[in-house]
Every structure is written in C-alpha cells, then in structure tokens.
Write a protein that binds this DNA or RNA. Structure first.
Length: 803
RNA sequence: GCCGGUGUGGUGGAAUAGGCAGACACAAGGGACUUAAAAUCCCUCGGACUAAUACUCCGUACCGGUUCAAGUCCGGUCACCGGCACCA
C-alpha cells in the first residue's frame, strides 16, 4: 500500500480551508493562545527552506494547543514596503504595488502548500492603505506627545540606496541592506525619541520571558552607564562639562579632550593661536566615512588647543585641552577628562603626545600600561580620597562635587534617537504638513490614510530628496491649523514602521474605527509566544517594544510589553555549511521538497534537522529518513488489531512518549520529540502489531508535526471523527512511565563490570548483594578491601576497592 | 578589547539535577527477497588490541583541578560563530 502524499495533502488542505478550522474564535470562553512568527517580506525570490523552520515550529505548538482546548490565534501577513520591491519596480518599470501583489501571491501559494495552520482570514499587508492608515495614526500620536520631532542632523547616508539609515541599520560602517558605503550627511530628519524609553526598555525585560542572549544584546545596545558630569572651568571663563564613569580618578586628570565637533571651539576661535591646524583636523575628521571611523587599531591623533586651558576643580591645576576624534560628539557631553593612568585610550594618547601620567589608584604599573581594575585598587595621590576603595571614592567625590555645585551624578545611554525618515517612494507617507506660519502640523485624523500618490518615476533623486518631492500637485496643500498655504512632508517611513505594531492588527484586522477594538486587545494581548530571528533583536524587536510602551502610556493597549515570550530559531544553511544565497548557488526551494516527498516530510525534516535554536546545514539525503518514517507510520494500518486499551507491553513506552513529546514541544526540542516517536515506532514494529487505541494515540502525538498523514490514517482506520475535529491531546500516567525492572550498572572503581536487571523497588542491601554476586564483579573485588559502597537507586552501584 | 554562544563518531545530532557517552537519523559495508533493479526487511558500524559481538585499554577541542564518579562542575588555554566596538 503506497502512500500518495499529493492526493492526501491536497484533500486535507481543502477540508481545512473549506471549514475554516484555523480561524481564531471571537468571544470565546476558551483560554486564548496567541502564537506569532515574524511576518515575511515578500521578496521576488520566493520562499527558501529557511522560512518554514519557524512557521513549522510554532505550527506544531499551535496545533498541540488546539488539541489541548485553547482558542488559538496563529496569523500571518506581509511586511511588504521596502527597497528590493522598489528597486525591482524601477528597473522593470512596473508599479511597486503590482510587484508586491505578484510576490505575495507566490509566497502565499508556497506557504499554503506546507499545511501551516495560519488563520488566513486575518491576513494583513503593511502596504494596504487600510492598514497603514493606523501606522500613520500612531505616528501622529507620537508627534502630538512630543516623541516625533524634526531635526537638522548628521545622518548615515547609504550611497547606493540614496537614503538615510537608522544607526541600527549601519553594520560595520556599511549599509545593512545592500553593503554599500555609508557616509555622513547633514539633513533635516524626522526622529523618534526612543531614548525617552531607554530605562523602561531595559528594566521591563524583567517582565518577559526572552532568552538571556536576547536580553543581553538589547541591554548592550541600549548601553546604560552610570557616572557623573563634572564642570571644569577654563582660562577663558567658560565652563567645560565632561562625562565620566570614573569620577574617583579626578585627581589623575592630566589633560582634557573634546570632540572635533565640540561647539566651544567656535566660541574660542579668536583666542586659539593654532586655529588653522585645528580647522584642518576638524575637516579631516568630517571627511571620514563610517567605515574608516570604525576601523580597528587606529593610531590616536589629535591637536592641542593653544591659548585655552582647563582648571581641575579638585586642585585648581591648569591642564591642556586637545581635540581628537576618539571622543565622540554624540555621547555624553562630547568632552572628557583624560586620566591616562587608568584608561587605556587616554594612556595611548598620553604616550603619543608625551603627557604626564599620574597614578591615583594603586595596584598596577601605570608607566607600563593603564590600570583599569576597579575592584581591588586603593586611592592615592588624591587628597581627600586617599586610602579609599574605588567605590567609596566615587561616592565621596560625587557628593563633594554636588555640594560645591561643580558636578552631579548622571546616567548615559549609547542608544540614540531613531532616524525615522527615508527618501524613498515605497513606504508610508509621513502625515505631516509644513506651514510657514504654524510650523509642522499633523494632517487631520479624518484624512487618514494619506495615500501614496501615483508617480511617474520612483527613482531616488541624487540631491537626496524623496521621489515624492517632484509631485508638486500632491505637495501643495493647506494647513489644517490656519488654512493657509502649506506643503506636505515628502519623506516616507522606514520599513520598520509597519512591523512595529502588526501583532495588534491581527487581533482585529478589519476594524475601521481603531487599530483594534478594546475587547479584542483585552482578550488577545499580549502575544503569548513570539518566535523570530536574532538579527532583529536590536531592530524590530526593540522598535516594537518602544511603540507598544508608547501605546500603553496613551491607553491604547492594556499591557506594558507586547510579547510575553520570545524564542529564536537558528538559520538553515546550505548543504556546504554556508549561508544560503543565490550568489553561492546553494538555495533549496521548498516547492521541490514538497513535490517529491510531501509537506509532512518537509515539516518533519525541518524539525528533526537539529537543535531549533542553532544553525543547521541542509541535507538532501537525510530527508529520506523522514519520508521513511512517514511511510512506516502509514503502514501501521497493515498490522492494526482490535483493542481499546494500551497493551501492557507498550504501556511504559507509550506513557513515556506522551510525556516526552509534550514536554519537548513546549521546550522547543522538536528534534528529540520526533526521535522519541521514531523509537516508539521501532518498538511497535518489533511487536508486529498495534491496536486501535495505540494507533489513535500515536496519530495524535504525531499530528502537530505531520498533520495530513495522521488525519488520513485516523479517518481510514475509523479511529474517530477526525483529530482536529474531536481529538484531545493524550494524558500520561506518571506511575506507568516506570518499568517493573531497571538495568543497574555495577562499577568497581568507576569501571563498568556488569549490568543487572533488578526490580525497581529493590532495596539497597538487596541491590548490593546482587551486585557482589555477579561473577565479573567478584573477580574484580576478589582479594581487595571494599572501602566505599555507593548505591544510586535505579541507576548504579559503585564499589571502591583497594588491595 | 568587551558581551553572548559553541566545540561529542564518516555526517546531522542525543545524553532532567554529576551516574552506562554516541539515543534517533543519514551515509557506508554485509545479508535476505528479486531473473534483475528499485523499494522493503535483517545484521555491522568511535578507536586500539583481537578469531571474537571474549578481555583490556583509549576516547566528548587542549592543560589542570574537585569527586567514588565529569561531555556535564571549577581554574586556565586554544579555535570558531553571533553582537557591540575609541560610549569616557
């Protein structure tokens, strides 16, 4: 009896669709379970085998939860704004809307062939005006609350995309998307004040169940540090404020460094005798691209400011001031006190410019290298701080500075505000107009959505303006505030906008009064389980937590965090162990696998391939093992016998399997869950028979992984009215998970000498005497003194002997 | 440099809370069935020493430690992967 996956899979997919069995229920009394995968970007390349890994994983969880009686929401949609589509549209002279539709159709067909239990009635699309209406609405709320502002600033500019990038989108000095060079440009940009939420984005990580590596990465990115701001007076009478985390080393400051962009330089220009040299250094620093700036192991460079000196507030000593690009204008105050004895960068600089190095913390040899250990050092050469530990000294000096009005404690973050404008066509228009009289004014909410106008050309402009800037008809409008002449914002939102709140829309996707109804939000929020890639940890995941917290603050959503639990899948690599990509020629298309082996085999293999959280190379050969397993399951029909109870010979194995498979699915150990089922089918094959109850349970356990073939067998063998229709996830009996007898290992001095089958409830003495009576053991202990006897019930015996 | 992670057979990978290393698969080799092949079924499968599936020894990146017992815990080293990177 050959298993025909094509007809069986088509049959069940049609039944599921016709009956709408995966539609989440409104107004249900049942407990809810909201599972979420990161919605895909519908690229022109179609799906590759990496996409279904997370989809299948949460599908397995979702299907199991349905069998456990939950009202499950497992939705999908399309994150469809973005550059590749736009670039394709430009090249082929097709409107991006048409390209998007074509790509979505293809993705949808491919995903549907896998039999994932998505609720397609809630499908969303970020480029749909009915959807981006609410993206724009959120932006307006951000604006009204002062969290969106426009600012002239130095931005990252991708030379190939011709578009600004957020800090998060610059990787190793190049564009995250296309790998092209990123340069600095001064432009007026829309910004979102994510920094206002920095503390809560760190602290509230305690409220959620994320993997430690995700939490660590987010904390790292936000980069909170606690230190102090200290005011140094200068010989010009100006105050130079610096930020430091080592206020304790204030007596060791032998010079100051300010960034090349520091505003005091302009102020001091006529007092500086070497201003030409300084200007030259400033210009050189400005010319550097991000790539050059981030290059490692650079030599320290800088120029001394001749004509101005700073005064150390603790001892009134005059010290020189330098400019150097190792001090960043965008962090702290853009100025530092340099303590070469206790900071490696300052040490390098001091050695190069031959500046004094004064030890103020004992414990190292500061002439050889900077001593940066805070834990063990004792203060010295530090007046009032002498003899204190570093921690004590920090506290004392900050108290002193505060009292004297010369400084105060201060928290700083590496996180910067989010650069939110893009000079491209295929994104949400920013719903703001500029009026000469009223400034920036949001359009009236009743005017939403502000639709993208049809344009002739989506080509980005070389002068750095959005393609929309050429649309004079569209740009010219009236001010919603005063009715006077105004013009529209021509930049669009970044791709991250639509994905920052999409999980809310799934809860109530067709609502035209609100982004989702209060009732839907109350019932479904938060997302119970969100799986996604590690690459989104400091981008999408952080952005969406920020937006959610804002929506929480203005009373739109009922929970402080969007996602209760986060898991992360590893990448599926090509057969050669490298990342799958078109250029490497190692891309595997899931369509071919589904066609040849079926969706169930494909799903099973994706889950069996290895630890879900780790990367795993694809192996065409290994798939066959999964197909064999499906066929062995299918062929259980041929050895089916009557019986409505698990037979004693399978009782322990089946109870253990129910327990193990259930636990493993919850703990994302899908590979061992499947291994357990494979081992169970081996046991069953050895018995050469399976009864109806055993087959029924086996089919239900396998169903979340291989939903088609299990339903088919369930139906053919008349095991019930259908797994989805009526089956419940089986329960196990803990008392039946143990065998009557267990194998006990007998060791002598830690070496295995025998294995004994002993009744589980055998007592210590009994086990010992049985162990000692084994012939091999007797030989090993003969003529020796037993000095220790270790008995671990149900596990082992270890006899420690000496001659 | 800092933060996080990983290192186990020919391969992918197993091994609650320190207790039989290699589950479950793939590949390989041998056999059965077959005119033949495919499919299926059975056997072998870390290494050394062996006639042996008998003994014994070695073996979880490397060095050392704790323990009756270490892939697992501790200290150190190396390699690789991911993130951050002159953040004061």
């Amino acid at each position: 009896m050959k298993y025909n996956h094509k007809s069986v899979e088509q049959k069940w997919q049609k039944i599921w669709e016709d009956k709408g069995v995966f539609h989440a229920l409104e107004d249900s009394e049942k407990e809810k379970f909201y599972a979420l995968i990161e919605f895909p970007y519908p690229s022109g390349q179609g799906l590759h085998v990496g996409h279904p890994r997370p989809y299948t994983a949460l599908d397995t969880v979702a299907r199991k939860r349905r069998l456990q009686g939950y009202n499950v929401l497992y939705p999908i949609g399309w994150d469809a704004f973005g550059l590749p589509t736009e670039n394709y549209a430009i090249k082929n002279h097709i409107h991006p809307e048409i390209v998007t539709k074509k790509n979505i159709d293809r993705f949808k067909k491919q995903i549907q062939s896998l039999g994932i239990s998505f609720d397609w009635s809630r499908e969303i699309n970020t480029t749909d005006p009915d959807y981006y209406k609410w993206t724009q609405w959120i932006f307006i709320q951000l604006f009204k609350h002062g969290l969106a502002y426009k600012k002239e600033m130095n931005v990252n500019w991708c030379t190939s995309c011709k578009c600004v990038l957020a800090n998060e989108e610059v990787v190793n000095g190049v564009c995250e998307r296309c790998g092209s060079e990123v340069v600095h440009k001064v432009k007026s940009q829309w910004m979102l004040k994510i920094t206002e939420y920095a503390d809560r984005l760190i602290n509230d990580l305690d409220l959620v169940n994320y993997p430690d590596r995700v939490k660590a990465q987010q904390k790292n990115w936000i980069g909170r540090s606690t230190g102090a701001e200290v005011d140094f007076s200068t010989t010009t009478g100006d105050t130079l404020t610096i930020y430091t985390t080592r206020a304790d080393t204030l007596y060791g400051a032998t010079y100051m460094v300010i960034s090349p962009e520091h505003p005091l330089i302009e102020k001091w220009a006529d007092k500086l005798t070497n201003i030409d040299e300084i200007r030259e250094y400033q210009a050189a620093a400005a010319r550097k691209s991000d790539f050059e700036r981030t290059e490692v192991a650079k030599d320290k460079t800088g120029v001394k400011l001749d004509g101005v000196r700073a005064i150390n507030p603790v001892n009134n000593k005059e010290i020189p001031i330098f400019i150097s690009d190792y001090v960043l204008v965008s962090y702290g105050t853009g100025a530092i006190m340099a303590v070469p004895a206790h900071d490696t960068r300052d040490w390098e600089f001091a050695k190069k410019f031959d500046l004094p190095i004064i030890e103020v913390v004992k414990g190292g040899n500061v002439q050889e290298e900077a001593f940066t250990d805070c834990a063990t050092g004792i203060m010295t050469n530090s007046g009032m701080l002498d003899g204190l530990s570093v921690d004590e000294a920090k506290k004392k000096i900050i108290d002193w500075l505060t009292k004297e009005g010369k400084g105060h404690s201060k928290v700083n973050y590496k996180l910067r505000d989010w650069v939110f404008s893009r000079q491209r066509y295929w994104g949400e228009p920013i719903p703001i107009v500029h009026c000469d009289k009223c400034g920036y004014v949001p359009i009236d909410e009743s005017e939403l959505p502000l639709k993208l106008p049809m344009v002739e050309s989506y080509e980005p402009t070389d002068n750095g303006e959005s393609p929309l800037a050429k649309m004079t008809d569209w740009i010219e409008t009236t001010c919603p505030h005063c009715g006077g002449k105004a013009h529209r914002e021509t930049d669009t939102m970044p791709q991250w906008a639509g994905s920052s709140w999409y999980y809310l829309r799934y809860m109530d996707p067709h609502n035209d009064k609100a982004l989702a109804s209060k009732e839907a939000l109350e019932y479904w929020a938060p997302v119970d389980w969100y799986n996604g890639g590690m690459e989104h940890t400091t981008l999408h995941l952080l952005y969406s937590r920020f937006w959610h917290k804002f929506l929480y603050d203005i009373g739109v959503v009922p929970t402080p965090e969007p996602y209760a639990k986060r898991t992360s899948h590893g990448m599926i690599l090509g057969e050669n162990g490298e990342k799958m990509s078109k250029s490497r020629g190692n891309v595997v298309n899931p369509d071919d696998i589904v066609d040849e082996y079926g969706a169930d085999t494909m799903r099973l293999y994706e889950m069996f391939i290895g630890d879900f959280e780790k990367a795993a190379p694809w192996s065409q050969a290994s798939i066959r093992g999964c197909r064999r397993f499906i066929e062995r399951f299918w062929n259980l029909q041929t050895i089916l016998i009557d019986g409505d109870k698990i037979r004693p010979e399978l009782e322990s194995a089946m109870n253990k399997a129910i327990k193990k498979v259930g636990d493993d699915i919850e703990n994302i150990k899908f590979n061992t869950a499947i291994a357990t089922l494979m081992a169970l089918i081996n046991d069953i094959s050895n018995l050469k028979s399976i009864n109806r109850e055993e087959l029924r349970i086996f089919a239900i356990l396998l169903n979340p992984f291989a939903p088609h073939v299990t339903e088919e067998v369930y139906e053919i063998c008349s095991l019930g009215d259908g797994i989805l229709a009526e089956a419940e996830w089986p329960k196990y009996d803990e008392s039946k998970c143990v065998d009557d007898s267990v194998e006990i290992v007998v060791q002598v001095n830690g070496k295995i000498k025998a294995k004994l089958n002993i009744s589980v409830d055998a007592q210590k003495d009994e086990i010992l005497s049985l162990a000692k009576s084994d012939e091999n053991v007797r030989k090993a202990i003969d003529g020796m003194n037993i000095i220790k006897e270790i008995v671990v019930p149900k596990k082992l015996v270890n006899l420690v002997v000496k001659p």
